[in-house]
């Protein structure tokens, strides 16, 4: 079991000694015991850190945000940032390292094990509790999840309450860290790509129907992009509204910006947006599932990313975020790469 007191103690020590400029971790939220991410800068607040199944956020995102923030500052604090990382967060960090977005010295990684379990899906909990507020949610034994409702302790099987991504996860402990808390219990999900395979078993027509229904709901609010630690680009190539137009931007420069897709959430444009995003995440997406969690329309975005994750593994034996030194999936090749699809 992760002893949170150990994490707090280390965070406190790092802050007291001035070794880090802050600690990004989870603290109790204001509503119903759901943890929220927080940047702690004072040593005494390290006591607030928590680690429980409600720590859903991928904190690698905050490393990205902090890095961008620093770039704007004239004299940024050069000390590293400490971050609590779960398995998926750590793999996201690895991708950021691989893409040289950050250097290893810029982060101190406080790795926490997912305790042979994972984080919960709010929708599933809400459904199971019939709308009642959970007072506390914590890791139980054997991967079970303990939910306290009205001082009553209820134990749920992980299958019932964990986020889908956690049920399909094969990396439920960090792959890169400076400190490690808890146990490394290798989990082998019975069918990590069951959902993908199910969809693949549908007829083309049925798949098309499925995706049309999904894509038709997209509002193009870009929450998926905002929450994704891999979507750190200054401008998104597919989205004309993210173009930085400054007073100095000339008419010619504006004319040179390509509108690969229309702004309005037409079905076709939604498709192209999500397709481009999926392709751009190939070999980079670590399936932290944040895109799907934050989607207000509940679009099965993971099902897209998971497909390419499976193909990267099946065709190229590549798993994102496991090796920060290796070249990225699409910036390398093997002589033996499959080509039976080529005429």
């Amino acid at each position: 079991m992760v002893k949170i007191s150990d994490v707090r103690q280390e965070a406190k020590r790092l802050l007291e000694k001035g070794k880090v400029r802050g600690v990004v971790g989870y603290v109790p939220g204001t509503r119903g015991g759901w943890a929220i991410p927080y940047l702690i800068q004072e040593a005494e607040r390290a006591e607030q850190l928590v680690w429980d199944p409600t720590c859903v956020h991928n904190l690698a995102l905050f490393v990205v945000e902090e890095k961008k923030e620093q770039a704007k500052q004239k004299e940024p604090d050069k000390r590293p940032l400490a971050v609590m990382v779960k398995g998926c967060d750590s793999r996201a960090i690895n991708v950021l390292l691989q893409e040289k977005f950050i250097n290893r010295e810029e982060v101190v990684l406080l790795g926490v094990s997912c305790e042979n379990s994972g984080v919960v899906d709010r929708r599933k909990i809400t459904h199971l509790l019939h709308g009642q507020q959970a007072g506390e949610i914590r890791f139980g034994d054997n991967g079970n999840i303990v939910v306290v409702v009205n001082s009553e302790r209820r134990i749920f099987d992980p299958q019932e309450v964990l986020a889908d991504r956690c049920l399909e996860c094969q990396y439920n402990f960090p792959v890169v860290f400076d400190y490690f808390y808890g146990e490394k219990i290798k989990k082998t999900p019975p069918a990590p790509y069951a959902q993908v395979e199910k969809l693949e078993s549908f007829s083309l027509e049925k798949r098309r129907q499925f995706w049309e229904e999904e894509m038709a709901r997209c509002l193009r609010c870009y929450a998926c992009r905002s929450v994704c630690p891999m979507c750190y680009c200054a401008e998104c190539v597919v989205d004309p509204i993210s173009f930085a137009v400054e007073p100095t931007t000339t008419a010619e420069e504006k004319a040179k910006k390509i509108k690969w897709i229309e702004k309005s959430p037409l079905l076709s444009e939604n498709f192209v947006y999500h397709l481009v995003r999926a392709i751009h995440l190939a070999g980079r997406c670590v399936d932290c599932g944040e895109c799907e969690r934050v989607c207000p329309e509940g679009i099965s975005i993971r099902l897209l990313n998971k497909k390419l994750e499976r193909e990267a593994l099946r065709l190229f034996n590549y798993v994102a975020g496991t090796d920060s030194q290796a070249p990225s999936l699409l910036s390398t090749f093997q002589e033996t790469d499959p080509e039976d699809f080529i005429w």
Binding site: C233, A234, P327, S331
Partner: peptide
Amino acid sequence: KSLCTGCGMCVEV
């Protein structure tokens, strides 16, 4: 340069 994040994928390929 304003779009480049220095990921180095171009360097690799």
